[in-house]
Simulated scan of single mutants.
Amino acid sequence: MSSSAQTKTIHEFLAESPDVDSSELWAEFWQILSEAKERIVAELPVQPHPASEGLDYWATEDGSYEGSMHTFSGDQSVEGAAAEWLVHSWIGNRKSSILDMNLQVWLGPQVDVPHLILVFGTIPQVFFYSECVARRDLMVDADHLARYYEPENEKFLALRGDDRFTWSVSHGTYMRAFLSPIAHSYVAERTDDVVETLRRVVTDRVDTWLGWVRDAVATPVEDRPALHARDHRVRTLGYTLDPMNELSKKFLGAERVDELVAVRAGFTQMKENS
């Protein structure tokens, strides 16, 4: 595996194959994410949030870029695990190589279970990113590391050692700082076996994460404000500093991208619940 393959930018991938129809892959990956979302909301009830009104489906006038976004929020007055913010979205062009499909679940401060992020993309090769966002500083909180990350180490190493998947290095320094010890960030060929492997990886990750949610220990009440503020800061930086935003600006312009990022990040919801 060459280092150049790991650090190739999405722009470079797209320049090599700019007009590949990814409609079938979009359907398969969107189904995987949609099934994961339904499993999650069955245990963590949410309601549609008005931030994404009008974005059920949208497209540019020339059809060069399209997408869909649905935002949800949960009841933060309950004890136990609750989803504070859930986003189910996609953006790109199904017939011209580039797609970015997301399911992101941000929990409230009642518990400190890691947040969950699942991303599929086409560039036009398959892109896959999955993260369990740490709620504590893993360099000093060995208990948090041992509880949530150490048990997943062998699974991480198994996929990391699968030669069908090439590690994909973000060119954004913040996004690299964002990574936990069990993050997945890969590029792979567009084959049925790759899709089925990733389907199993997502199913297992959601199974594991929901198990954490069920077994969550309540965060001490006095610790919740600081955890909540940290969560909001991580959400803000994770969305606004994503290098993918710069690619979208080439198609949509900076103003429109900033609007969509604000909706995905949930700026309105954060103000409502600060």
Rank of each mutant, 00 (worst) to 15 (best):
residue 2 S to H: 13
residue 7 T to C: 10
residue 12 E to F: 06
residue 16 E to F: 08
residue 18 P to N: 10
residue 21 D to S: 10
residue 22 S to Y: 11
residue 22 S to F: 11
residue 25 L to P: 13
residue 26 W to R: 08
residue 27 A to H: 14
residue 28 E to M: 12
residue 32 I to A: 07
residue 35 E to I: 08
residue 35 E to M: 08
residue 41 V to W: 14
residue 43 E to N: 13
residue 44 L to E: 05
residue 44 L to F: 08
residue 44 L to V: 01
residue 45 P to E: 01
residue 45 P to I: 00
residue 47 Q to I: 15
residue 50 P to R: 14
residue 52 S to V: 04
residue 57 Y to H: 11
residue 57 Y to A: 01
residue 57 Y to D: 01
residue 67 G to D: 10
residue 69 M to R: 08
residue 73 S to L: 05
residue 73 S to Y: 05
residue 75 D to V: 07
residue 77 S to H: 13
residue 80 G to Y: 09
residue 81 A to I: 04
residue 85 W to D: 01
residue 91 I to A: 12
residue 91 I to E: 00
residue 95 K to G: 01
residue 99 L to N: 09
residue 101 M to Y: 04
residue 102 N to C: 15
residue 108 G to C: 04
residue 108 G to F: 05
residue 111 V to T: 10
residue 111 V to P: 04
residue 123 I to K: 07
residue 125 Q to P: 14
residue 127 F to N: 12
residue 128 F to C: 02
residue 130 S to E: 06
residue 131 E to G: 07
residue 133 V to R: 05
residue 134 A to T: 12
residue 137 D to F: 04
residue 139 M to T: 07
residue 140 V to T: 12
residue 151 P to R: 12
residue 153 N to A: 11
residue 155 K to H: 02
residue 159 L to I: 08
residue 162 D to A: 06
residue 165 F to C: 05
residue 166 T to D: 12
residue 167 W to L: 15
residue 170 S to D: 02
residue 171 H to S: 03
residue 172 G to N: 04
residue 175 M to S: 06
residue 178 F to L: 10
residue 179 L to A: 01
residue 180 S to E: 02
residue 184 H to Q: 11
residue 185 S to G: 11
residue 186 Y to R: 09
residue 192 D to V: 14
residue 193 D to A: 13
residue 194 V to L: 15
residue 203 T to V: 03
residue 204 D to H: 07
residue 205 R to F: 01
residue 207 D to I: 09
residue 208 T to G: 01
residue 210 L to H: 02
residue 214 R to H: 13
residue 219 T to R: 00
residue 225 P to G: 13
residue 226 A to L: 14
residue 228 H to W: 14
residue 233 R to Y: 00
residue 233 R to C: 02
residue 235 R to W: 01
residue 239 Y to V: 10
residue 240 T to A: 10
residue 248 S to A: 14
residue 251 F to I: 09
residue 253 G to V: 14
residue 254 A to P: 12
residue 256 R to N: 06
residue 258 D to M: 13
residue 258 D to Y: 14
residue 259 E to C: 09
residue 269 Q to L: 15
residue 271 K to Q: 15
residue 271 K to G: 15
